[in-house]
Structure formats: structure tokens, C-alpha cells
Design a protein around this nucleic acid. Sequence first.
DNA 1: GAATATACGGAGCATCGACTCCGGTTACAA
DNA 2: TTGTAACCGGAGTCGATGCTCCGTATATTC
Lengths: 184, 184
Amino acid sequence: MTTRPLRADARDNRARILRAGTEVFGTEGPAASTEEVARRAGVGIGTVFRHFPTKQDLLNAVFTTRLEQLRDRARELAAATDPGEAFDTFFREVVAGAPSKLAIAESLTDPTGAAEAGSELREAFGVLLERAQAAGAVRRDVAAPEVFGLMIGISRATRSALSEAAVRDKALGVVFDGLTTRHR
Amino acid sequence: MTTRPLRADARDNRARILRAGTEVFGTEGPAASTEEVARRAGVGIGTVFRHFPTKQDLLNAVFTTRLEQLRDRARELAAATDPGEAFDTFFREVVAGAPSKLAIAESLTDPTGAAEAGSELREAFGVLLERAQAAGAVRRDVAAPEVFGLMIGISRATRSALSEAAVRDKALGVVFDGLTTRHR
DNA sequence: GAATATACGGAGCATCGACTCCGGTTACAA
DNA sequence: TTGTAACCGGAGTCGATGCTCCGTATATTC
């Protein structure tokens, strides 16, 4: 049931297309054309469609890759840093990275194909959150879904209402204060 | 320089199209086809394009209408209710109304044509916020842009990560706590 | 250094959606 | 009632985009 390894040029092209897709969909959104991706990757359209039979497949692959990167980053932070700081850092990094690749923000929640990578991300995020709670950096009466939701919401607004860094930081400050308060 | 009044049927059709546009773009997003709007309005495509020469014009008209409604609601609340409650109510209403008409959330910040209505909304929102601050319901070291941004962010996430009402309420609770805290 | 399975490129096809055009219809004034 | 300007409907045009097809090229194996 194992598929034989790809030919060298095919493997390279696949990686190229994935990189180009990340760039193009990241800046122009999912509506960007497949041809644009092919151009940026320096390959023919036929090649793109051989590797990813459908545009949706390509989008899923790009999204999944991105989700996996975030998941890895979350795990890395969980293993090495002070719990409170790790949580804070991850949250801010996700938000900061959103504008240049809005595609992620738009898919972070879209079950279409990237489901597994998505739930792994959520799980890694959950670990980050629990550690922060155990360390007293985040109050205990909140759960992962709502905190994750806030992160995504702010990420999305980053393209528009929260496009200015100073304003975005203030918004983040409000949320972090809300995640810290003890009363109620 | 005054344009003569529209014929009765034309006026009716225009209103119909606007209503249909609100529904269609609200549920399917700005990518929905003009033909779908025409169908839902019960008119021919030609009629839609006569009233709104461009799809963008139609979108702008729909958005503007929506923004004006929100602006009016903000003013209404500012005039009649307890400052803290008015702010809270408006914030929650906007978020609650977002999923069924994501088009607004997507345009609440888009300068394209709806600029004037947009800034009027922001102004009315600013009044709501300042009143709440004066009444001690919201801390004084936050300004309208970041609070508005939070509202939009949560509105957007409402379609996805914050689609469940219970989760959304918890997220809102966190933000309101953050807007209340006094320390720092 | 063949032989061949793999992979490539890009012209071409089919579809879809924005927008136009014009023959037919209707509201409204006189 | 009738004349006419205003309006309507929807078939048709045009450009864009997802996807296919196949002749050509190249990596890999022996």
C-alpha cells in the first residue's frame, strides 16, 4: 500500500508549488488563481494540477502545512518556555503572522480537509493554555475554545480594523487583562 | 440639479433588490452572484444592473444601508439607556447579528464607497464608549479604535471558531472583563 | 547508454459570472 | 383614453478561471 517515492524533479516542483501557494493565497486570499500560483512557482499549470488535482486540494495542502507549522511552534514553546510567557508569545505570534497570510486565519477553522492538522493545533494550544493556567498566568474559568476563538477573531480583524500595530497591541492588552482578572 | 422621482414600479424594484442583496450577500458573502440576487428579488438581471450599474455599486448600497442601521441603533441606545448597559448591548447586538450577515463584518472597515456611513458608525460608537467610560463602566485608558476592532474581530470569528453561542458568550465575557479592569 | 516509466508544459475546452442591448411593457400626464 | 417617457426582462457577449489532454522531455534503472 506504499506509494513509490516521487521522482526528484517532481518532489522539487511539489515543494515549489506549496511555497508559491502559501505566498499567493496568503497575500491575495483563496480567490487567487491557480495560474498565478503556477507562475510564481515557475512551473506549468498542468504540473500544478497533476500534484493537486483540484484547486481545493491545493488550498487544503497549503492550509495544512501552515497549521502544522503553528502546531509545531506551540509544542516548541510548551517544551521550553515559562508557561505564562509561552502562552503570551504564541498568541501574539499567531496574531502578528496573520496579515501576511490571511489564508490561515480563514482556514484555521474550516473543516475542509485540514481537519486533522486543525485539531492537532487546537490540542497543542490547549496544552499551552492549561500550563499557563496552572502557573497562575491565566484564570482558570476559561476553556480553550473561547480563547482560541478570541485569537482567531483578532487575527482576522488584523487585516482591517486592527491593521495598525499600536491599535492591535492595545486590543491584545485588553484581552490579556481579561484573561488575567481574578474577580467574578 | 434634482433628479425627478422614480416611477412607482422602479422604486419598488429598487427596494426589493436591496432587500434581496442583504439576504444573499449576508448569507453567502460578497462572492454571491448578481443573478442570485435578481432571482431572490423576483426581477430580471437587467433590472438589477439598471439600478446598480456595477456589482460593486450594489454591494456598496447594501453595506451602506447596513451601516446606517447600526449607526441609528447606536444613537438610539446612546439617547435612551444607561451608559454601561447601552455600550454592552450594542457590542453584543453587533456580534450576535454578524453571522446572518457576515457581509457587514467584512465591510465594516472596507473604505470602498461606504466610507461615509462607516465613519458615522464609528463616531456613534465612540459616543457610546465615552459615555460608558464617563460612567465608570469601561476603563479610561482604551480608545475607540481598539474596542471597535475587538468587536469586529469577534464578529468575524462568529462564523467559525465562535459559532457556538455558549463559547461566544464566554469570549465576550473575557473581553468585557478586560475592558473593566482597573489595575495597570 | 539505452529503455521506459514519470513528469512536464501549455494550448484548448467548458463553465460561470459580470455586464449589454433592445424589443416589449407599463406608469403617468394630459 | 391615449401618447410617450420610463422601465422591464432575459438572451447574448466577453473575459476569466478551473481543469484536461497529449506530445515532448527527463530521471532512473539495468
